[in-house]
Design a protein around this nucleic acid. Structure first.
Lengths: 229, 229
DNA sequence: CAGTGGTCTAGACCACCCA
DNA sequence: GGGTGGTCTAGACCACTGC
């Protein structure tokens, strides 16, 4: 019972959840709701806009506001930042660089980066530990055409992710999650068996249409990404 | 270049991305920004509030608005709804129930449901096809104490998810993603090999603290969940 | 065309919380 | 205490789009 728009929002949400307004039903328009709740239309608008953002209702000009058929179509996930994840578990974070070389952009990576990628990329492989246990294996490629200074950076003490965050902004990113099988190299670094099912996160970032970096993050067996909504 | 608050928002976002305002910097207050952009304070407020929602800035009363150290901490994912996913791929959706029985709630499930679960659950196993290819294997448990009518429902033609959506609302849900290995039964239903790495989504839903259902969704090999932000 | 949501304004009061 | 963001209002004009 604090702010007006929250009250309106909760009230309407409850009516939908309790079935007063069923999926597909048309809700009263903003003016009528404002009268009912004895508030300004802007207040109703704010409440309804947030409900629409959350996916509970669907709004169209002239057509009005309707309860969605399938409520809640999306959820927010926090993007994993490995150091914070490990420290949040009460473990000591440790990082190790295990490989570093400069190569011509492989074709599959060129396709991922969007075709505009040009020459060489810096390839880094590293392991993130929680206490003494390997937690995540990271395969990263950095576009040297966009970030030539990466060639001179020392990634032995500072992880590539933290270096990148401190060095370059990004305007666009794509992230995807999937399951994959541990190959021999990954199994060795993570201390698991070849063939184990691993959770894989891949992320590509751009700065004004120029590809910056692509990374494959392989999580230790049993990793779960969870959210409540 | 359409609405005022979008212009303000984009302008401020660009200044942050270009480094005019660096992480940790204090931004001008809303009144000053309103003067600069020649608009009402409410317009600036709307723009800033959305930037805060997106995680680009951090706002505190009296302290003002600051650029976040680690920009973009979360992304939104659409919750997979299997029929829509398959039809979006231009394939024909088909569903098959492969198993159905009533059992005492197993301990692991009781733990997942929150301890308040009581007696029996309806266990369903089904496969979702895209054209003729198995796309997803679903293992579902429905709390019969909360939904006794599920025992009489015919899940041969209508999938449990669609039945549930049409029958009962929910107020709370937890979803988690991980990787797992295909067991013999799953491999048989999905037409893959035992031991293949599969993407697993698990979801539990509650209605006013009463557990409704828990489901394990195993996706065909190669499934990827992607988002851009 | 006309109803609905989308946005904007100018002003106001308030809650919070740093100094 | 006082500055900042958080919210609310009453009214207005506009854009979209179903009818």
């Amino acid at each position: 019972m604090k702010t007006a728009f929250r009250n309106v929002k909760e009230d309407i949400r409850n009516r939908i959840l309790k079935g007063v307004w069923a999926p597909g039903d048309l809700l009263p328009n903003e003016v009528d709701l404002a009268i009912e709740f004895d508030c300004a239309r802007a207040t109703v608008n704010r409440a309804m806009r947030e409900l629409a953002d959350e996916g509970l209702v669907e709004r169209k000009r002239k057509a009005g506001t309707r309860v969605r058929q399938a409520p809640l179509r999306q959820a927010r996930f926090s993007i994993p930042i490995v150091r914070q994840e490990i420290e949040a578990r009460g473990q000591i974070y440790r990082y190790a660089l295990v490989d570093r070389n400069v190569v011509e952009t492989p074709d599959w990576l060129r396709a991922r980066l969007g075709g505009t990628a040009t020459g060489q990329v810096l390839h880094l492989a590293c392991v993130h530990f929680g206490d003494a246990n390997p937690y995540q294996f990271e395969d990263r490629w950095i576009n040297l055409a966009a970030l030539p200074q990466a060639a001179d950076a020392d990634f032995n003490s500072l992880g590539p992710n933290e270096w990148l965050v401190a060095t370059v902004p990004f305007s666009d990113a794509e992230i995807s999650f999937s399951a994959t099988t541990a190959d021999a190299r990954t199994a060795r670094h993570l201390g698991c068996s070849e063939g184990d099912a691993l959770f894989l996160a891949e992320r590509t970032t751009w700065w004004e249409d120029q590809p910056i970096t692509h990374v494959r993050l392989l999580f230790q067996r049993g990793y779960r990404m969870t959210t409540r909504y």
